[in-house]
Simulated assay, not measured.
Amino acid sequence: MTTHALPRTLIAVALAGAVAATAAAPVSAAPRAASHRSTHSPHSATQDALDAITRGGTPGVLAGTDRAGEVWHGTSGVADLRTGRPRLPRDRFRIGSLTKPFIATVVLRLAAEPGSGLSIDDTVDEWLPGLVRGNGNDGRRITLRRLLQHTSGLYDYIDDDGFRAKFTGPAFLSHRYDGATPEELVRTALAHKPLFGPGDGWSYSNTNYILAGMVIEKATGNSYASEVERRIIRPLGLRGTTVPGTSSSVPGPHGRHYSRLYVDDPAARVHDVTDFDPSVSGASGEMISTTRDLNIFVRALLRGELLPPAQQREMFTGHDLGNGRSYGLGIRSQTLKACGVKVWGHSGEIPGSLTRTAATADGEHVITINRNSDWGDPALEQAAVEAEFCG
Rank of each mutant, 00 (worst) to 15 (best):
T2M: 08
D374F: 03
R371I: 06
F172Y: 14
A14L: 04
P198V: 06
V250E: 04
G221C: 02
D51F: 05
E386K: 04
H4P: 15
G115V: 06
A29K: 13
A359Q: 03
T207I: 07
P253K: 10
A68D: 15
P351C: 02
N206G: 11
T207P: 10
P7D: 11
T58H: 06
A171H: 09
G391N: 08
P170Q: 12
G245Q: 03
Q312F: 12
I350D: 01
V273C: 03
S223E: 08
Y262D: 06
R260Y: 03
I350Y: 03
T39G: 12
S44K: 14
I369Q: 09
K218E: 13
S28V: 11
E217L: 00
V186L: 10
G96C: 09
G74S: 07
W72C: 00
A18H: 12
V250D: 04
G340F: 08
H175Y: 04
Q312I: 06
S248H: 12
G255D: 09
L302N: 02
A310K: 13
G64C: 05
E229W: 01
L306H: 10
Y262K: 02
E286W: 04
D374M: 03
L98Q: 12
S347T: 09
V215T: 02
R109Y: 07
G328A: 08
Q312H: 13
S119Q: 10
L173R: 13
R371Y: 08
T181W: 08
V186N: 07
M315E: 07
P244R: 06
A29M: 12
D320E: 14
R239W: 08
M1W: 09
A225Y: 12
H192K: 05
S152I: 01
V132R: 02
S289N: 12
D293V: 10
G348C: 09
D377N: 13
E217S: 00
G255R: 05
